[in-house]
């Protein structure tokens, strides 16, 4: 019998703790498939964040390092500068990358570290129970903005792909979504490109994934998918924001 679908070798044979309808599982799988297809699992080091993906070190079947909150790209810098022959990726949420780790994020991109950042933007703090994120949309309700995000006091949500694309240092910066099979297929090509840029020693690469959080958005998975399509994509347009010259 022909195998048409199997778990990538780069993913560990374990169940994850992610909520039903969350897209972390899809994003993990895309990274795992690409590490397999590029044949780099055995020379890859992944950096897990603090946030929903804190346990990612148990889910990827490659060497993993757990970072402190926001510092994943600093840790990745240390690994990559120590061992430029390794394939290094970070996996971070919006609180980790765009709030507490904003300094590290901008500077790792500006130094042009040859690493790949998987950035999962679900517009909320998931692990801590639904607080406002730097990417929470205007009017969106969270436990620390119970009446909805007020841009007068909280500012506007930060568009990380656009912000990082404004840096002069060459980079590959893309925003994708994974809420439909078509988007998943497109996103996989982007993940491949991002790792290829790293492996060729070409540039820093970052992929912003728009992701759902049915649990903390208070929606069913289907409602969450529709909400992402109707609200997140208009504010966070998909596409390539920067490609290396």
């Amino acid at each position: 019998m022909q195998t048409v679908f199997a778990r990538p070798e780069s993913l560990a044979t374990v169940s994850t703790h992610y909520c039903p309808g969350c897209t972390h599982g899809i994003i993990h799988r895309l990274v795992g498939e690409i590490l397999d297809e590029l044949g780099v699992r055995e020379r890859t080091v992944g950096i897990a964040p603090v946030g929903c993906a804190v346990l990612a070190y148990n889910y990827f079947n490659c060497d993993m390092i757990e970072s402190s909150h926001g510092r994943a790209t600093a840790v990745a810098t240390g690994v990559k500068r120590a061992r430029p022959d390794l394939c290094v990726f970070t996996y971070q949420g919006d609180g980790d990358l765009a709030s507490i780790g904003m300094g590290e994020t901008i500077h790792v991109a500006n130094r042009g570290e040859k690493i790949t950042v998987i950035f999962v933007n679900n517009a909320i703090y998931g692990m801590t129970g639904g607080q406002m994120a730097p990417t929470t949309l205007p009017g969106q309700v969270a436990t620390t903005c119970p009446l909805g995000r007020e841009v007068e006091t909280a500012g506007w949500p930060i568009r990380m792909a656009e912000l990082l694309a404004s840096l002069r240092t060459p980079a590959y910066i893309t925003r994708v979504a994974v809420h439909t099979p078509l988007h998943v297929a497109k996103a996989k090509q982007v993940v491949r490109k991002a790792f290829q840029h790293q492996l060729a020693g070409r540039c820093f690469s970052l992929i912003e994934f728009l992701s759902t959080c049915p649990t903390n958005w208070g929606m069913t998975p289907l409602e969450a998918t529709r909400w992402l399509e109707a609200n997140m994509i208009p504010y966070y347009p998909l596409g390539e924001y920067k490609t290396p010259e």
Partner: peptide, 12 residues
């Protein structure tokens, strides 16, 4: 960042 970079380099 510097101290977390040595965390990474040492981890490697």
């Amino acid at each position: 960042a510097a101290s977390n970079m040595i965390y990474g380099a040492s981890a490697a």
